[in-house]
C-alpha cells in the first residue's frame, strides 16, 4: 500500500513539474490550447462530481459555465466591477441557481433530470441570444481581460492554480463524509434516507457545489477569451464535456480532468482533419460507453494493475 501511495505522489509531482514547465516548451498557440484544456478540466471534474459521485445525471454544467462568464463579464463591462469580484459574484449566482435547480429537480432522476437540465441550458442560451442589446447576442460580447499585457502566461498559471485548487477541494470533499453521503444517495436514495442522510440537503449541495466550480471556470475562461457567445452553453459544448469526462472516467475527478486535457490537445493536434475529429471523438465516446463505462483511463489503470498483480502474485497487495 505504501508503494502505491509513493507511486501516486511521484506521479502527481511529475505531472506538476510537466505542467509548470509546459509554457516554456511550446509556442503561444499551444499555450492557449493549454489554457483551454485547463478550463475544460475544471468543468469535466465538476461534472464528474455531480454525475459520477452524487449520481445526479445533469447536462446543465455548461449552462453554469456560461452563467458564470456572462455574470462576471457584464458586471465588468457595464459597471466596472473589479473582475475577481465579478467572478465571485458569478460563482455565488451559480451556487444559488444550482440550489434552485437541485430543489425543483428533487423528484426527478436519471433521464428526466438529464432532459430538464438540457431544457434549462437551452432556455438560458436562447435568452442570451434574444436579449442582444445587453448580451451582444450571437455577435458576442466583448469583455475586459483579467490581465494587462499580451502574454498568456499569467492566464496559464492562474488556470493551473485554479485546476489544482479545484481538484484539491473536490478531492477533499469526496473523501469527506459529504462525499460518502453523495455516493450513498447515488447508490440508493431510499436506503440513504433510512441511514439518516438528509437526502434533500445533500442533493442540493451537490448541485450547488458542482455549479460553483463550473461558474468559476466560466468566469476565468471568459475573461481570458475576452469575447462571450451564447454558444458556450450549447448542447454541443456540453456534449464535448461529457465526452471528455466519460472517456477519462466519470467516476474519478482526476480521470475526468485528464480526459478533458487529452481530448482538448488531441482535438487541436487533429485540427487538420476538421470535422473528422469530432466524428472520431463521438465514436470513441460511444465505444467507451459501450465497452468501458468507467472510462478509458480506469480501463488502462486496471490492466496495468493486473500486470503488476500477476507479477507479484506471491504477495497479493490489497489496494486501498
Amino acid at each position: 500500500m505504501t508503494r502505491s501511495l509513493a507511486g501516486q505522489a511521484a506521479l502527481i509531482a511529475l505531472a506538476a513539474v510537466v505542467a509548470v514547465i509546459f509554457p516554456h516548451l511550446v509556442n503561444n498557440y499551444w499555450l492557449s490550447v493549454g489554457i483551454t484544456a485547463l478550463f475544460y478540466a475544471i468543468v469535466a471534474a465538476s461534472w464528474a462530481l455531480l454525475v459520477g459521485y452524487a449520481g445526479q445525471f445533469s447536462f446543465g454544467q455548461m449552462a453554469f459555465v456560461s452563467m458564470g462568464a456572462y455574470t462576471s463579464g457584464m458586471l465588468a463591462k457595464y459597471y466596472d466591477v473589479p473582475i475577481p469580484l465579478g467572478i465571485a459574484t458569478g460563482v455565488v449566482l451559480c451556487a444559488i441557481t444550482g440550489c434552485v435547480i437541485g430543489y425543483v429537480c428533487l423528484r426527478m432522476r436519471g433521464p428526466y433530470l438529464a432532459l430538464f437540465t438540457v431544457a434549462f441550458s437551452e432556455v438560458l442560451r436562447i435568452i442570451l441570444v434574444s436579449e442582444a442589446e445587453v448580451t451582444g447576442g450571437n455577435g458576442g460580447l466583448q469583455i475586459p481581460s483579467l490581465f494587462r499585457g499580451r502574454s498568456d502566461l499569467p492566464y496559464y498559471y492562474l488556470g493551473l492554480v485554479l485546476l489544482g485548487g479545484s481538484l484539491a477541494l473536490m478531492g477533499w470533499l469526496v473523501r469527506s463524509r459529504w462525499g460518502l453521503f453523495f455516493r450513498a444517495i447515488r447508490e440508493n436514495e431510499e436506503a440513504a434516507a433510512a441511514a439518516g442522510v438528509k437526502v434533500v440537503r445533500f442533493r442540493l449541495l451537490a448541485f450547488a457545489i458542482a455549479a460553483m466550480f463550473a461558474g468559476l471556470a466560466g468566469g476565468f475562461f471568459g475573461h481570458y477569451v475576452g469575447i462571450l457567445t451564447p454558444d458556450i452553453g450549447s448542447v454541443d459544448q456540453m456534449g464535448l464535456v461529457v465526452a471528455m469526462a466519460v472517456i477519462g472516467g466519470p467516476e474519478s475527478l482526476i480521470a475526468a480532468s485528464i480526459g478533458a486535457i487529452l481530448v482538448e490537445f488531441l482535438l487541436e493536434a487533429l485540427r487538420a482533419y476538421e470535422q473528422w475529429r469530432l466524428v472520431l471523438f463521438a465514436l470513441v465516446l460511444l465505444l467507451t460507453v459501450r465497452f468501458a463505462r468507467n472510462g478509458l483511463l480506469a480501463l488502462g489503470a486496471d490492466s496495468v494493475m493486473r500486470v503488476f498483480r500477476r507479477r507479484d502474485a506471491a504477495t497479493p497487495a490489497r489496494t486501498a
Partner: peptide, 27 residues
C-alpha cells in the same frame, strides 16, 4: 429508529465498511 427493507437495499458499489459508515457519520 432503524429499519430494513423488504427487498434488501444496500449501497451496492460501496464497500461493506462504507455501507456501515454512512449511518455512522450521518449522526
Amino acid at each position: 429508529v432503524g429499519r430494513t427493507f423488504q427487498i434488501t437495499q444496500l449501497f451496492s458499489r460501496m464497500t461493506v465498511l462504507e455501507n456501515m459508515l454512512v449511518p455512522g457519520l450521518a449522526r
